[in-house]
Amino acid sequence: MASQGTKRSYEQMETDGERQNATEIRASVGKMIGGIGRFYIQMCTELKLSDYEGRLIQNSLTIERMVLSAFDERRNKYLEEHPSAGKDPKKTGGPIYRRVNGKWMRELILYDKEEIRRIWRQANNGDDATAGLTHMMIWHSNLNDATYQRTRALVRTGMDPRMCSLMQGSTLPRRSGAAGAAVKGVGTMVMELVRMIKRGINDRNFWRGENGRKTRIAYERMCNILKGKFQTAAQKAMMDQVRESRNPGNAEFEDLTFLARSALILRGSVAHKSCLPACVYGPAVASGYDFEREGYSLVGIDPFRLLQNSQVYSLIRPNENPAHKSQLVWMACHSAAFEDLRVLSFIKGTKVLPRGKLSTRGVQIASNENMETMESSTLELRSRYWAIRTRSGGNTNQQRASAGQISIQPTFSVQRNLPFDRTTIMAAFNGNTEGRTSDMRTEIIRMMESARPEDVSFQGRGVFELSDEKAASPIVPSFDMSNEGSYFFGDNAEEYDN
C-alpha cells in the first residue's frame, strides 16, 4: 500500500469516517454492505422474486439502478423543472426478469421514488447511507470498465484509444464523492478537466460571474484530485501550473494530454476495490451473516471469500459463452479491467482472455432483445487465490505491452514486471518541450526514458491461498515475461453508450 500519510484510507472515504482504527473501519464497511443486503432482500420480497430470480444479476442491476435514481437529487430536480413526455419524475423502474413456464419473461416495473427511498433508509437504520449508494455506483463503473473500451470518449477529448488503461471510473457520476474520486484513473480526471476547458473556450461566460466562481472551485478541486494521483514531483508541479492558470485554454489542454500520456509509464495511484452486485450481499445477509459484527474490507480476502460461497446467475444470449460472461463479471467484481492478464489468470486459476476474444456482450439486456431465446446460467466467480488490492500504480518500471492497449494499471499487489510499449508511448511525445512547463516536461520525458521494462514492481508481494486469511504465506508467482498482458488488445469491444 502506498503510505497513507495525511490521506484517509478508502474504507474511511467509503464510510465518510473520520480517523478510525482498522477494526472500526471493518465494522463501518460491514455496516454499509449489510445495509445493501437488507435493502436487496426487501426489494425481492416487494417484487415477489423467487430465490433464483433474486440471484439473477440482471435483476440486481435494475434494483441497484432504481435506488441510485431515487437518490439522484440533481436529476430529480431537473426532471421536475423540465417535464418530458412519458417520463414521470417521481417514478423509477426498469426490467425485471421472471421464469414463467420454463421461459424467461421481461416485466417492466415502476415504483415511486419516495417508496424506494423509504425501503433503502429502513434497511440502513434510517440513514441515507450515501456510502452504500456510492458502492453500487463503483460496481456499475467497474462493470462498464470491463465491458467497454471507451474509444470515442478518448478520441473526443484528444487522447489515444490505446490509453484505455487510464480510464478507470470514466462512467462514474460526478456525485460519487471521495470514494469515487479515489477509483478514477488519470485519464478519467484528464477527460473531465478537458471537457471543462473546452467549454470555457467555447463559452465566454463559463468562468464568469457567480456560476463561474463555482465552476472555478470545481476545476481547482479536480486538479488537486489529479495532482494527488501522480507520484513524481515534476508531474505534480505541472498540475500546479494547470490549476493556477488564470484562464484555462489550449496550453492547459496540451499540458493535460501530455500528463495523461506520461501516466502510461509514470503511473498514478488509483484505488481498486472489489464492489459486488447487491444480489451477492442480499443472500449472505439472508443466511444470517452479520457483516457489521464480522467486519468487512473491500481490499482484502473478504470479497473473494464471499464470491467463493455465492451463487449468481445471468441471462445468456443464444451465441454467448457462459464462461466468457463469467470472466467479464469476475473482472468487474475485482475492479480488474486494466490489470495484467498474466496476473489475473494466476489468481483466477483459469486463463483470462483479452476482451476481443470473449464471445459475450454486456450483462444488460436491451429492451428490444428477444426473450424467447434467452437461457440462463451460473456465473463462475470463484478464484484459485486471493491478493491484496493496490492503491498505487506500482513502481515506475515497465515491460512490453500489446498493440491495442499500451500499458496497464495494476489492481493487485503482486510481484511482476509491468508491461508497456515504450516505443509507441515515446513516439507520441513530439519533443515539444517549450513553453512555461518546459523544464517539467524535459524531466518527465527523462524519467520515462530511463524506466526499464525488466524491473520488478511490488517486490516480494504474492497471492494467498483462500485458507490464508491473515495473509501469512505469500506465494510469489513467476510470469512468462514475453507473454501478452493487455485486456483490450487489438480490440473490438462495443462502445459504451450512456
Results as ranks from 00 to 15, higher is better:
residue 141 S to T: 09
residue 151 T to S: 15
residue 495 E to F: 05
residue 359 S to K: 15
residue 277 P to G: 01
residue 313 Y to H: 12
residue 474 P to H: 06
residue 367 S to L: 09
residue 155 V to H: 04
residue 364 Q to F: 09
residue 289 Y to V: 15
residue 105 M to G: 15
residue 293 R to T: 09
residue 353 L to H: 15
residue 291 F to Y: 13
residue 25 I to L: 06
residue 257 T to M: 05
residue 216 R to P: 02
residue 114 E to H: 10
residue 203 D to A: 09
residue 477 P to T: 12
residue 309 N to T: 11
residue 282 G to Q: 10
residue 425 I to R: 01
residue 42 Q to C: 04
residue 81 E to H: 11
residue 148 Y to F: 12
residue 43 M to Y: 04
residue 193 L to G: 10
residue 493 A to F: 09
residue 85 A to I: 01
residue 30 G to M: 10
residue 268 G to C: 06
residue 455 D to G: 04
residue 409 Q to E: 11
residue 120 W to F: 08
residue 395 N to P: 05
residue 150 R to T: 12
residue 116 I to P: 01
residue 266 L to Y: 06
residue 465 E to K: 13
residue 492 N to M: 05
residue 113 K to N: 10
residue 498 N to W: 03
residue 348 K to E: 09
residue 318 P to N: 08
residue 344 L to D: 11
residue 67 V to S: 15
residue 126 G to Y: 00
residue 171 T to Q: 05
residue 230 F to E: 05
residue 469 E to W: 11
residue 254 E to R: 00
residue 421 D to P: 00
residue 450 S to Q: 15
residue 450 S to V: 01
residue 35 G to N: 12
residue 79 L to G: 07
residue 45 T to L: 10
residue 294 E to S: 12
residue 13 M to C: 03
residue 232 T to V: 13
residue 366 A to L: 02
residue 455 D to E: 14
residue 114 E to P: 14
residue 147 T to F: 04
residue 138 I to Q: 09
residue 360 T to K: 11
residue 253 F to P: 00
residue 475 I to M: 12
residue 185 G to R: 07
residue 344 L to C: 07
residue 371 M to V: 12
residue 65 R to K: 14
residue 58 Q to D: 02
residue 257 T to P: 02
residue 289 Y to L: 14
residue 25 I to N: 11
residue 152 R to F: 04
residue 286 A to S: 11
residue 334 H to C: 14
residue 134 T to E: 06
residue 165 S to T: 07
residue 244 E to H: 01
residue 36 I to F: 12
residue 78 Y to F: 13
residue 110 L to N: 09
residue 244 E to C: 05
residue 217 I to N: 13
residue 388 I to S: 11
residue 345 S to T: 15
residue 54 G to K: 08
residue 173 P to F: 04
residue 235 Q to Y: 04
residue 16 D to W: 14
residue 305 R to K: 15
residue 249 G to F: 01
residue 237 A to E: 09
residue 456 V to N: 06
residue 345 S to A: 03
residue 124 N to G: 10
residue 141 S to E: 06
residue 403 A to S: 15
